[in-house]
Design a protein around this nucleic acid. Structure first.
Lengths: 277, 277
DNA sequence: AGACTAGCCGAACACTGTTCGGAGCGCTAG
DNA sequence: CTAGCGCTCCGAACAGTGTTCGGCTAGTCT
């Protein structure tokens, strides 16, 4: 699955029970004096990440508080700060772990575009396997080692497609952001549905109730909007992939000379935003 | 800049002093019993939104707590809940207000693509004018009236470009999400820079320090990555626009017959995500 | 003038992330 | 074998957060 980085993770992660899970303590043992002797597991960084991931997977990122995580580990919140600088870092570590779950893409694929799509799909499915977690990566692309390797792999695929480096840099961000946004949107929607099963109905009902004179286009295509906004998130995701790769494929053969920006189509005008602020 | 909406705002916002700012209260007045007589402004919904927007604009969304907002209005937090159901709704109202700031696009433009780009740029500049606020709209596209009108206008432009409805529905989401993500990312980056002026340097330094054997592509194009990841966010945004519209323009002339999904290019395979969960 | 109603307030509840000083344990130096 | 040291964990607290409840007050309507 992964390489040498996850080795240490798995090692420190594989010693949950240390000893004395079968025999009772003899009465003269000093252990009987202290109340309950709470087992004193070492509480490593990886154990924290494990527990945090368990909470996120089952109850979502909103349920992951330092206190909740501490009780999950049989520990007081302050103890966590000896291994993790804070919640921010913890989230980065979680994201880096899911980045470690996916395989590195082939460095020299036959079809770079197909490999790219498959790679992004695997990133997506890794993220959707962990509930909400994608929201922690939203504007905030992580910088952990596994994630950097992920980015490196994607960049490799793009340059394998003979995309100019500047365009590849932009494109990788664009593609990853698309994955993250899509996953987060899906998780959020699922959460809303779970909280209120009638959510989708009330939403489509709201769209249907919009006055057609002021919202002519929404009224005209309300079916497509409700179909796309909700149900099978896969189609939405694939649509985004199609849109982007259609351009990016052309970009590889088109403007290799264009120095840095906008290497896809020549923009209608090099116009900056009118800055109304 | 805007129309009839900001009128009421200014009205409710322009009556801070009502009376008795010059003469002292006579000693027998009942006003001397109660301490300070806190002026009893009406506290309308729009006044709340005004104050909230002021806080967000100057200090960011993180500074907008119900307590902060209450003190800003000279009021206790509980009073806000008579006009706003909670923080969630407040954010939706804020977003809808900025959606009200931008003009509706022309329904029948000469060049639909140029009009579309310009429209998205105006949305972007409206959002960047309000700090962090875009983050409140991230997975969570608002449903307020102004925002719906915004979506309706965008859909109108897309169908004006002869895009099939299903594709237009997907595309509008994709485009808007791109705007929001871009703005949020920019605001977040600006915040980090403000908190730690050396942030960008340390980040590019980190990228430069990555071992080239394990991160060959990042090492090879670290210049383009740092150039794109930070400085002028406009180029990133325009790149995304170029990528998407290059495809979308082709989609209008290409597959009008394709029923619902993936109306741009024929996908390599109709393959669903392998669902590792 | 009296009753009513809407809206604001004080206080509290149940949380959150994070910090600080003290206490216990294991390991190492003497 | 003991003394010291350092690392880790704990208890408690700080400074916040969103939200709710019941009471009070002020303006309005009859």
């Amino acid at each position: 699955m992964s390489d040498e980085i996850s080795r240490s993770d798995l090692v420190t992660n594989a010693i949950p029970v240390t000893r004395s899970a079968t025999l009772p303590e003899p009465p003269w043992s000093s252990l009987r004096n202290k109340p309950a002797r709470p087992e004193r597991r070492p509480l490593t960084r990886d154990a924290i990440i494990d527990a945090a991931m368990r909470v996120v997977d089952s109850e979502g990122l909103g349920a992951l508080s330092m206190r909740r995580l501490a009780t999950e580990l049989g520990v007081v919140p302050a103890s966590l700060y000896g291994h993790v600088s804070g919640r921010e870092e913890l989230l980065q570590l979680l994201l880096d772990r899911v980045a470690g779950e996916i395989d590195r893409p082939p460095p020299h694929p036959d079809d770079w575009q197909a490999a790219c799509r498959e790679f992004l799909r695997s990133l997506r499915s890794a993220l959707v396997g962990h509930n909400d977690l994608a929201s922690a990566a939203i504007g905030n692309i992580p910088t952990g080692p596994h994630w950097m390797q992920l980015v490196d792999g994607l960049l490799g695929l793009l340059v394998a497609g003979r995309m100019p480096p500047a365009a590849a840099a932009y494109a990788s961000d664009l593609l990853i952001e698309h994955v993250i946004t899509d996953v987060y949107e899906g998780a959020l929607f699922a959460q809303r549905i779970e909280a209120d099963p009638g959510y989708f109905d009330s939403l489509s009902q709201y769209l249907n109730a919009l006055p057609a004179d002021r919202f002519p286009n929404i009224a005209a295509m309300v079916d497509h909007l409700t179909a796309g906004g909700a149900g099978s998130g896969d189609a939405r995701f694939e649509f985004g992939l199609d849109v982007m790769f259609h351009s990016l494929a052309n970009a590889t053969v088109a403007t290799d000379d264009a120095s840095s920006r906008a290497a896809v189509t020549r923009p209608t005008r090099q116009r900056h935003v009118p800055s109304t602020a």
